[in-house]
């Protein structure tokens, strides 16, 4: 069930869903959530690879690197979403909209 290939396919699918959400959805909050989805999909890949390299199947055992990477990614993602929401609040105060289509002051 949880083979390396299955995990990687699942991760790629979730990543694609996230990327589609950022491109297609017209709500900045949902776009933020989609970005988080992308990062978490990558975390899944990292964990799957870490498990693979940590096991006896792989020639060199360096499974911890992937796990450390996931921890770092989670910290960065948290910082990123905090900043993103803060910017969104500043934006919402000015124009009472979360539609990226309304971001039209800068053009050309």
């Amino acid at each position: 069930m949880f083979t390396l290939t299955n995990c990687l396919v699942l991760s790629a699918l979730i990543f694609a869903v996230g990327a589609y959400g950022v491109i297609a959805r017209r709500n900045i909050l949902i776009m933020l959530m989609s970005v988080e989805l992308m990062l978490n999909a990558v975390n899944l890949s990292f964990i799957a690879f870490a498990r693979y390299y940590g096991s006896a199947l792989a020639p060199a055992s360096s499974g911890t690197t992937g796990q450390v990477f996931v921890l770092m990614t989670m910290v960065v993602a948290a910082a990123e979403v905090a900043v993103g929401l803060a910017i969104l609040i500043a934006l919402f105060r000015g124009r009472h909209s979360v539609d990226p289509g309304d971001l039209d002051l800068l053009k050309g």
Partner: peptide, 25 residues
């Protein structure tokens, strides 16, 4: 400007990180 920079920057981070994951893999 901050919002647009942030959205596209965070999107790009996703790609960068996925690339790193595949290279690690």
């Amino acid at each position: 400007a901050a919002m647009k920079y942030f959205l596209l920057g965070a999107f790009a981070t996703g790609f960068l990180l996925y690339g790193i994951a595949l290279i690690y893999g």
